[in-house]
């Protein structure tokens, strides 16, 4: 028999979770499509009533995005330009209906290779805050997503928030999505780029690509080669070979692998050109 717990405090939620065998649920935008049943199957821990889990706040060390913050919440939040890519991704996740229900932590925990929320958060060097009855820990997002549909969550653990450090919440950012139609579409490729510019030079930058590897990927090698260059040269100087080497896309019903590689380069260049004031194309 399906059963559902809907606690109102985190302590209660963690206690229920520690009993094991429960699926944490928030927006249910991935859980319901996975079943044809009219009721969520199995034992479910609904987190949406837990106080303190929803919303975005500035902290002394950066920004905290609560686990059950919806994509609509992200869109409406007052955030600096480094988060523009996150908002641009929020707008591309499913539809308005999905954005009103789907949550940031849900997107991470679902761990889809094509999750649009992940590349921007990788480019923000987000950390995932995890709690259990035994305490809390933090993991860099890149380590949290362990593989396609796999995370580093241990039994009894829950994502409670995503943190963006002050340092990486800087610069301007851009998210680009390529899909076979305008709305409600799974990405063929998505890219996120963030550039911190000082006196016309890229002091720091972050690039991430989605849907081109088992998990969305930060392109650290590529970034290193570009750091310190004049921003106007970034798009042109992007090392195509290094991007291709980093990615491991597959052929599927949406596109062929070779195309994904090429499109990732094109989109990265466009994102960089957009950010550095060069006209597109």
């Amino acid at each position: 028999m399906a059963d559902q717990a809907r606690p109102e405090t985190l302590r209660e939620a963690l206690a229920i979770l520690s009993d094991g065998g429960r699926v944490a649920a928030a927006g249910c935008t991935d859980l319901f499509p996975a079943t044809e049943s009219q009721t969520l199957p199995g034992a479910v821990l609904d987190l949406t009533a837990v106080s303190g889990l929803r919303g975005i706040s500035a902290t002394a060390r950066g920004w905290r995005i609560g686990a059950t913050t919806t994509w609509t919440d992200v869109l409406r939040a007052d955030l600096p330009p480094a988060f523009d890519m996150l908002k641009q991704a929020a707008r591309e996740i499913g539809s308005v209906q999905i954005q009103n229900a789907g949550t940031v932590a849900g997107n991470l925990c679902n761990a889809s290779p094509a999750a649009d929320g992940v590349p921007p958060l990788l480019a923000l060097e987000a950390e995932v805050e995890i709690a259990s009855v035994n305490g809390a820990r933090r993991l860099p997002l890149a380590r949290f997503i362990a593989g396609p549909r796999r995370t580093a969550l241990r039994p009894g653990e829950l994502v409670t928030a995503v943190h963006v450090p002050m340092d990486t919440g800087k610069g301007r950012s851009r998210f680009l999505k390529l899909g076979a139609r305008r709305y409600l579409v799974i990405s063929i490729v998505s890219v996120a780029a963030r550039v911190v510019e000082t006196d016309g030079v890229a002091e720091a930058l972050a690039l991430a690509v989605g849907a081109c590897s088992p998990v969305p990927l930060r392109l650290t090698e590529v970034e290193r080669a570009l750091a310190g260059r004049p921003v106007g040269e970034l798009a042109e100087a992007l090392d195509v070979g290094a991007v291709h080497a980093a990615l491991s896309p597959i052929d599927d019903v949406r596109a062929e692998a070779a195309y994904r590689r090429e499109a990732a380069v094109t989109l990265l260049r466009r994102a960089l050109a957009d950010l550095t004031g060069q006209g597109r194309r």
């Binding site: 559902q4 809907r6 649920a25 927006g27 249910c28 935008t29 319901f32 499509p33 969520l40 479910v44 609904d46 949406t48 009533a49 609509t72 308005v96 209906q97 999905i98 009103n100 229900a101």
Partner: peptide, 13 residues
Amino acid sequence: AEPVCACLTPLAR
């Protein structure tokens, strides 16, 4: 006042 898919919304929500 916000649009949601009723098929993805659990009753409790």
